[in-house]
Computed example of a mutant assay.
Amino acid sequence: MNITREDFYCGAFLSYLLNNGIVPALFDERVDINRKIYDFTTDKGDFRVYVKCSESPSSESDSRGSSIWNFPFTKSQIDEIKTLKTNSRNLYFVFVCGRHALNKSKIAVIPHNVIYQCIDINRPDKYKGQSVKIRLIKGHWDFDVYGTARADKINNIDNTIKVRVNNIDELFRKEQSEKIS
């Protein structure tokens, strides 16, 4: 079996879960080894995550202290996303925002309803590229999320969707039991 770069970045997400006390009780078998879609269960519920990776920011601004990662979606990936909707699992998109210094990489966990505002899964001309962009500004608590179907600015006013940088802990971490005194 050949190991791809995507395997390493997906491994970063899975390692983060395990190393931070987020212990999935069950992983469902992947039907297609090339898909980066994982089904798992924790004490917080049943989850399906679609993982995409970018090795480095597509744009950086030292003066603003910001980095932007671009995550393109192919026609077949958009078609696949249409089939991901599920009633029994909470659906999230996980974007591994890589850096050359790997320990500076970030993981953005974005709810599906935010992604559906950033790309148009029902776009008539599905052969035109679509993408999600994740911006992180130094010192901010949130990722700025936008994409093909949602501009980052309208009339020079911020139009991005804010998603908490550390929401991965809130979403998946095991509930702490209260100590009885």
Rank of each mutant, 00 (worst) to 15 (best):
L102K: 09
L102H: 11
L102S: 13
N103P: 02
N103G: 00
K104W: 07
K104T: 05
K104D: 09
K104V: 00
S105I: 04
S105D: 03
S105H: 08
S105M: 06
S105K: 01
K106V: 03
K106Y: 15
K106P: 06
K106A: 01
K106L: 14
I107Q: 07
I107F: 13
I107S: 08
I107T: 06
A108F: 12
V109H: 04
V109N: 01
V109I: 07
P111E: 05
H112M: 02
H112E: 09
N113K: 10
V114Q: 00
V114P: 02
I115Y: 11
I115C: 03
I115E: 02
I115V: 14
Y116N: 11
Y116H: 11
Y116G: 11
Y116S: 10
Y116P: 01
Y116E: 12
Y116R: 06
Q117T: 05
Q117M: 06
Q117F: 10
Q117R: 09
C118K: 02
C118P: 05
C118L: 06
C118S: 00
C118M: 09
I119M: 03
I119N: 05
I119L: 00
D120V: 04
D120F: 01
D120A: 10
D120Y: 07
I121G: 04
N122H: 10
N122T: 05
N122D: 10
N122R: 04
R123K: 12
R123I: 03
R123P: 00
R123A: 09
R123C: 03
P124E: 11
P124Y: 10
P124G: 00
P124K: 00
P124Q: 09
P124M: 05
D125S: 08
D125L: 12
K126D: 11
Y127C: 02
K128M: 12
K128P: 02
K128Y: 12
K128D: 11
G129C: 00
Q130H: 11
S131W: 00
S131P: 01
S131K: 13
S131Y: 01
S131G: 09
S131C: 14
V132L: 05
K133L: 12
K133D: 07
K133T: 08
K133F: 01
K133Q: 14
K133I: 03
K133G: 08
I134D: 10
I134H: 10
R135C: 13
L136R: 13
I137P: 06
I137T: 15
K138R: 14
K138V: 08
K138G: 11
G139C: 11
G139K: 13
G139E: 14
G139D: 15
H140A: 12
H140G: 12
H140S: 15
H140D: 15
H140C: 13
D142N: 15
